[in-house]
């Protein structure tokens, strides 16, 4: 059913014909790194990708904070304070931000804790579980505090595109990125589009 999609929330298009190499960054928030594995799963096409884009913060580099980028790929939802900071950093540095995978798109598996009370969870895990004596809820300021609920990333910042799947296949990610890089409206049809 030929669906003409408006990009989400007035997404910016990546400038086509720009001879400059585009910069791409990725991050994993509350996810399982499965989506990153999928990205690496594009196999030999990775070489083609490296031809076309420079990697900023990503599994392929050692960069801690992302700099000005054209494309940001985010895996995972928002479950703690640090996730929010990283996401916001990405949003402010990336022209186009893409949610990758079920967790980023709708909270995914981690969000299935949302009907539980966080206080009670912490209590049970650290204080009252049967094998615990003199337990203590970790309170090191270095540790990010968990949010009361897990959220998909589009509830925190503006997201331009979504690649659903748990994880999306390497083919889906490749199709999406090449559409984008070539200046087409990225589309996933059967069977690339799936939620599981």
């Amino acid at each position: 059913m030929g669906a003409e999609r408006e990009p989400e929330r007035g997404a910016e298009r990546v400038v086509v014909g720009d001879k400059r190499k585009l910069r791409l960054a990725t991050a994993s928030l509350a996810g399982c790194f499965g989506c990153h594995m999928s990205l690496l799963d594009i196999d030999e096409r990775l070489f083609e990708l490296v031809e076309r884009v420079d990697f900023d913060r990503s599994p392929l580099t050692d960069i801690k904070h992302c700099g000005a980028c054209d494309i940001g790929l985010i895996e995972g939802g928002i479950c703690n304070a640090e996730n929010v900071h990283v996401l916001r950093e990405f949003r402010s540095h990336c022209k186009v931000l893409i949610a990758v995978g079920a967790c980023a798109v709708n909270g995914g598996l981690p969000a299935q804790r949302n009907h539980l009370d966080l206080g009670q969870c912490l209590q049970e895990i650290y204080l009252t579980a049967p094998d615990i004596v003199g337990g203590k809820i970790p309170n090191d300021p270095e540790l990010p505090l968990p949010l009361d609920k897990v959220h998909p990333i589009h509830e925190i910042v503006r997201i331009d595109y979504f690649i659903p799947g748990c994880p999306p296949s390497g083919d889906a990610i490749w199709k999406f990125l090449t559409d984008l890089l070539d200046g087409r409206t990225p589309r996933l049809g059967h069977p690339l589009l799936h939620f599981d």
Partner: peptide, 16 residues
Amino acid sequence: LAYELEMLSPHFDQFY
């Protein structure tokens, strides 16, 4: 149907 209509995200905030 979500696939058929190329629904890529839930778009709205989740009610959970």
